[in-house]
Computed example of a mutant assay.
Amino acid sequence: MVMALSLLGSIPVRLDDSTFAPQRKAMRASRLDDPEHAAYAWGRFRTILKWNLIASAVAALLGLLALRWMAGPVPWFMALMTVMGIFMTVGCAALLMGLVFISAGTGHDAAVDNTMPDNQI
């Protein structure tokens, strides 16, 4: 039995709970199980992520320039937090978008056979 701590604190949670067995059985093999295809997909994901991180940096600098143009000189801490806020927001959105692309593009989403009635999930 594998145990872990839940997000709510020190309540133990069984990771091998038998209620997930039907969900595991319903999954077909995805193309990510093939090492060659997985290497290609993760390489593509890293490429997308690199370009999106560059776009995040450009967006952060444009935001800083817009702040400077609208408000004039600002304290360094405000400028730093503005840059970090924009960079992290755009970067997190890019990361999630990339994960959606890799999941859909490799057929990982299609590997789930969702034939269970709605009231059982």
Rank of each mutant, 00 (worst) to 15 (best):
V2Y: 04
L5M: 12
S6W: 07
S6Y: 01
L7C: 06
L8I: 06
G9F: 07
G9L: 05
I11D: 12
I11R: 14
I11N: 12
P12D: 01
L15M: 08
D16H: 02
F20A: 09
F20V: 13
Q23N: 15
Q23F: 15
K25V: 00
A26K: 01
M27E: 14
R28L: 08
A29L: 13
R31P: 04
R31T: 06
D33F: 02
D34L: 14
D34T: 14
P35Q: 11
P35V: 10
E36W: 11
E36Y: 11
A38C: 11
A38G: 05
A41Q: 12
A41T: 10
R44Q: 14
R46I: 12
R46P: 02
R46S: 12
T47E: 11
T47V: 13
L49N: 01
L49I: 09
N52Y: 12
N52I: 11
L53K: 05
I54P: 00
I54E: 03
A55G: 05
S56A: 11
V58P: 08
L61S: 13
L62M: 14
L62F: 15
L62I: 11
L62P: 04
G63R: 08
G63Y: 03
A71S: 12
V74N: 02
P75Q: 13
F77A: 08
M78D: 02
A79M: 08
M81R: 06
M81T: 09
M81A: 02
T82Q: 04
V83I: 10
V83Y: 08
M84K: 06
T89W: 03
T89L: 15
G91P: 06
C92V: 09
C92F: 12
C92D: 12
A93G: 09
A93D: 09
L96A: 15
L96E: 14
L96K: 15
L99A: 11
L99M: 15
L99D: 07
L99F: 10
F101W: 15
I102E: 04
S103W: 14
A104Y: 06
A104F: 09
G105R: 05
G105Q: 01
T106C: 05
D109S: 14
A110T: 12
V112C: 03
N114P: 00
P117K: 00
P117R: 00
D118I: 07
Q120G: 00
